[in-house]
Design a binder for these strands. Structure first.
Length: 586
RNA sequence: CGGGGCGUUGCCUAGUGGCUAUGGCGCCUGCUUUGGGAGCAGGAUAUCGCAGGUUCGAGUCCUGUCGCCCCGACCA
């Protein structure tokens, strides 16, 4: 490609709103342009990178037996009503009616669609297992897109779906994905870790997320440097210690103005571990048969030295959604904000008690009366509720596996794998007849990778003060040919030679100053920059700089140039290949 | 959905009620220049997001509205 006729241009300054480096450079280098909140175009450079990422994904998916398909972005609402997600998912899914008034949705994922397709094809155990995948556009009306391509509303996703006879088969496909994903990310050059995760709206059991660790991430990852335990904070567990003692009689104590745990502890001269903290949320519960929803007040109780992980609370309460409760809602249920506890709460309030509270004794808790707390409250004796782990893991807490201190980091989720089970096959009637003649629901798995988000993470990982420096496997072009000589013939000849050798070349044939050309080359960041200049031309050579190391200059003879460059490309590709992560799920 | 910020030419930006709305980059023309965003000369591009209001006079003040960004809520 010639720069003189190139569609996109580079920007000298970062447009407003480019808050992180990767995003800024993707904009400035002309990879992407924004059209609306969370809506982007991929320009030639960005699209080429995306296609390379997709090619890697296709190879690895084909490698584990995947068959590529393409399902529609527009789905009839009927199939989403079958699984109930038409009702349980809120405004994040966009809906409309077609000309005859039929309900339609823009697919935000394709479990329904693929199950609909599969139930038409699969009827016997002889037709299992299966694995299909697609690379498709998704629309999710996220309330808050941010950070360029990291979190958008319209995006391209590779999603694959496995169909099996039994759990062993699912396990096998799940493991295949687990390993394939590590290969995909490492072939693109992105360092990731796999963490145990919540299954969220997918509604499955086992799930992993692939996380690119970075301060720009919005997920919190809990890891143990000692034994390798990793989990999303939403589900991370930790080792708790309990102070059990003989139960003492409950005792009301005046604690004026002591609304927070800190104030309470100061006032009573006690430690937060001797208190129970209440969090009031309102949960939404949806009947998946009828779509009817109702709200119910939930009070979560955790020991004062910990925080409640809302995701765990939501799961423990089996709610579809949570929101903070209003003050009047809390009072209506017989409790007092700031001095709250489940003691004396009215019927119909869901009480979830963290085991840290359930297994400790004689905790100070709210008296549900302004200005008063209760000493020596005890779960079981003074109040009832569901006991669950709803405490949020934090830095320094003890690893649930080995007991060493945990570390907290930020991460971006670039992929995930879910064991769905029969949630979709059962509700949509995707059954097969087994050898024993019995009709059984197909066992499914669902696996996703965000292509654009992966590109955004790569841009974040691979940049310096001058611009992008994407790995050769995902860079738009392999070679950036910069001609600084007046005579166009040499450049044209080399450009032709490299192209004839199958090398992907971006050729800067513009009438621009050397500085402009170099700055643009740095910004766009092709892995190999070849400079044609009078200096070296006299000696029959061209100069080479690798984007990964601008300090070092190599030179190559004009004779046999194409082969030399091919060798160099192979060397860079070899470095990536040497870093391919082969990791099996334990 | 709550809190905050910002909308001036392709991009960045000045503007604190007063004349014909700054400047830089980019763009066009010509000349010069050609190893790190070059120089000179000339030129084009703005219904100051939109609508209404206050005023003799509004980019500037008020109201509404739309869009974008950030924090939170929310979310594979």
């Amino acid at each position: 490609m010639r720069m003189s006729t190139f569609f996109s241009r580079t920007l000298r300054e970062a447009p407003n709103g480019a808050d992180c480096k990767g995003y800024e450079y993707l904009l400035r280098a002309g990879f992407i342009r924004q059209m609306g909140a969370g809506i982007f175009s991929l320009l030639p450079l960005g699209f080429r990178s995306a296609k390379k990422i997709e090619a890697v994904i296709r190879q690895e998916m084909d490698g584990i037996g995947g068959q590529e398909i393409l399902m529609p972005l527009v789905n009839p609402a009927d199939i989403w009503k079958e699984t109930g997600r038409y009702y349980s998912i809120d405004k994040e899914m966009s809906r409309f009616q077609d000309r005859v008034g039929r309900d339609m949705v823009l697919a935000m994922t394709h479990e329904e669609a693929v199950t609909d397709v599969a139930r038409g094809e699969i009827d016997s155990y002889k037709r299992l297992p299966q694995l299909v995948y697609q690379i498709q556009t998704k629309w999710r009306d996220d309330p808050r897109p941010r950070a360029g391509l990291i979190r958008v509303r319209e995006f391209t996703m590779k999603d694959s779906y496995s169909f099996d006879r039994d759990l062993e088969g699912l396990e096998k496909q799940y493991k295949a994905h687990y390993a394939a994903y590590f290969r995909i990310f490492s072939r693109c050059g992105l360092p990731v870790i796999a963490v145990g995760s919540d299954s969220g709206m997918m509604g499955g059991k086992v799930a992993h997320e692939y996380m690119y660790l970075s301060p720009i991430g919005e997920d919190t990852i809990i890891t143990c440097p000692e034994c390798g335990y990793t989990a999303n904070r939403q589900v991370a567990t930790f080792r708790k210690t309990y102070a059990s003692a003989d139960q003492l009689p409950i005792e009301k104590v005046a604690t004026p103005e002591a609304k927070t745990i800190d104030e309470l502890c100061d006032f009573l001269k006690i430690s937060p571990t001797q208190t129970a903290k209440a969090l009031f949320m309102v949960g939404t519960f949806v009947n998946s048969e009828t779509g009817e929803e109702h709200e119910q007040l939930i009070v979560g109780l955790v020991r004062g030295d910990m925080d409640i992980e809302e995701n765990k609370l939501q799961n423990a309460a089996k709610a579809n959604g949570l929101r903070p409760a209003h003050v009047d809602e809390i009072r209506a249920a017989g409790m007092e904000p700031g001095f709250g506890s489940p003691i004396g709460a009215k019927e119909g309030v869901i009480v979830i008690v963290d085991d840290s509270v359930a297994k400790s004794n004689n905790l100070v808790a709210g008296a549900n009366e302004d200005g008063y707390h209760l000493r020596n409250t005890n779960y079981g004796r003074d109040y009832q509720g569901i006991v669950a782990d709803i405490a949020s893991a934090a830095e320094g807490y003890l690893c649930p596996v080995c007991g060493k201190p945990l570390v907290s980091s930020k991460g971006v989720e670039v992929g995930n794998i879910f064991q769905l089970g029969t949630r979709y096959s059962e509700s949509m009637g995707c059954f097969y007849q087994d050898e024993d003649g019995v009709r059984k629901p197909v066992i499914m798995g669902s696996y996703g990778i965000g292509v654009g988000r992966l590109l955004a993470c790569l841009a974040e990982e691979y940049n310096d003060g001058n611009g992008l420096k994407l790995p050769i496997t995902v860079a738009p072009y392999q070679v950036h040919l910069v001609s600084l000589v007046k005579d166009a013939d040499v450049g044209e000849r080399i450009y032709g030679e490299l192209q004839a050798a199958g090398i992907e070349v971006l050729y800067d044939d513009r009438k621009e100053s050397a500085g402009v050309k170099f700055a643009d080359a740095d910004l766009m960041g092709m892995p190999i920059r070849m400079t044609i200049g009078n200096r070296s031309l006299k000696e029959g050579k061209v100069e080479i700089k690798l984007r990964g190391n601008l300090d070092e200059t190599l030179s190559l003879d004009l004779d046999g140039l194409a082969q030399e460059v091919k060798d160099l490309i192979a060397k860079l590709q070899g470095q990536i290949a040497a870093g391919i992560v082969n990791k099996e799920l334990a």
